[in-house]
Amino acid sequence: MSEPLKMIEPEWPVSSRVHAFTTTRQGGFSEPPYESWNLALHVGDDSIKVKKNRSILEGELISVQEIGWLNQVHGTQVVELTETGIQSPEADGVFTSLRHKACAVMTADCLPVFLVNKQETWVAAIHAGWRGLVDGILEQAVQAYGSDSEDLIAWLGPAISARHFEIGDDVRQLFLSQSEKDGKFFKPFKEKYLADLYGIARRKLEARNLQVYGGDYCTYNQSELFYSYRRDGVTGRMASVIWIE
């Protein structure tokens, strides 16, 4: 193993009954440009090394019986992890009320979001890139809870910050066509705009009366900790995992 294992854990008012963390790039077996704890099999990395990296992750999942991996497509589908697994894994969000079943999403600039209810009997992991945010992935995840959204707490995991996320006016207009309130999250930059994914996600969740935490990292800027597709192009993926003990 090339480096000590390092993970990012949420700072939020949730007890130790619920476990959650986002992995970093530190601690695995992958070689450049995937060094070193890449968990994705679809990015061109050596599959043997990726499987070794996943075995490290599995060793960190205390009492977990299954990880609900998804085939992420930048959509809005949110699926349930049941006793028999996930029926249609082509989705960008997964939730469960079962103990010892882990919900997981992979990212390398897009925003990973954890949800947990205050009773700590329901958890979810969501992959929210700009397409998912525009199309309503967070709203779909909140709706999947099926009860009062005020019961939910959210944590925004490591994503690209507004300082480095450059988009065109076409993307900006998609957001503004849904809510003029999102205008403040776009700042002119040369002939384009810098977009604040954290700010947009926070607004959307707080509008539904969720308590929101996190949003303190930048995958692009913190190269020693995180993979970044915008920064590197060919790169690995982190995993954000949450489960009920």
Rank of each mutant, 00 (worst) to 15 (best):
Arg237His: 12
Val241Lys: 00
Ser240Phe: 00
Glu206Ile: 05
Asp196Trp: 02
Val241Ile: 11
Val212Cys: 02
Arg208Asn: 00
Phe226Lys: 00
Trp243Val: 09
Arg208Cys: 01
Thr235Arg: 01
Lys184Thr: 15
Thr235Phe: 04
Asp216Leu: 10
Cys218Ile: 04
Pro188Leu: 06
Asn221Pro: 11
Asp216Gln: 12
Asp216Pro: 08
Gly236Ala: 12
Asp216Ala: 12
Thr235His: 03
Asn209Gly: 10
Val241Arg: 02
Tyr229Arg: 14
Ile200Lys: 00
Leu205Tyr: 01
Arg203Lys: 12
Cys218Leu: 07
Glu224Met: 13
Val234Ala: 14
Lys192Arg: 15
Arg230Pro: 09
Ala201Phe: 02
Gly215His: 08
Ala239Met: 09
Arg237Pro: 10
Ile244Phe: 03
Tyr217Gly: 03
Phe189Gly: 12
Ser223Glu: 13
Thr219Leu: 09
Gly183Trp: 10
Met238Pro: 12
Tyr213Asn: 03
Glu191Tyr: 13
Ser228Glu: 09
Arg231Lys: 13
Arg208Trp: 03
Tyr217Trp: 11
Lys184Pro: 05
Phe185Gly: 01
Gln211Pro: 11
Trp243Arg: 11
Val212Ile: 08
Glu224Leu: 14
Gly199Ser: 06
Arg203Pro: 07
Leu210Trp: 06
Asn209Ala: 11
Ile242Val: 15
Leu225Phe: 14
Gly183Cys: 10
Ala195Trp: 04
Ser240Met: 02
Gln222Trp: 06
Met238Ser: 13
Phe189Ser: 15
Gln211Asn: 13
Phe186Pro: 00
Lys192Pro: 11
Asp196Ser: 08
Phe186Ser: 06
Ala239Ser: 10
Tyr227Arg: 15
Arg237Ile: 11
Asp232Cys: 13
Trp243Asp: 00
Lys184Glu: 13
Gly236Glu: 09
Leu197Lys: 04
Val234Ile: 14
Tyr198His: 01
Gly183His: 04
Ser240Ile: 01
Trp243Cys: 09
Tyr193His: 07
Arg237Ser: 10
Leu194Lys: 01
Tyr217Phe: 12
Ala239Asp: 08
Ser240Glu: 05
Tyr193Asn: 05
Leu225His: 10
Tyr213Ile: 05
Val234Leu: 14
Thr219Asp: 11
Leu210Gly: 07
Arg202Asn: 07
Tyr198Phe: 06
Gly214Thr: 00
Leu197Trp: 00
Ser240His: 02
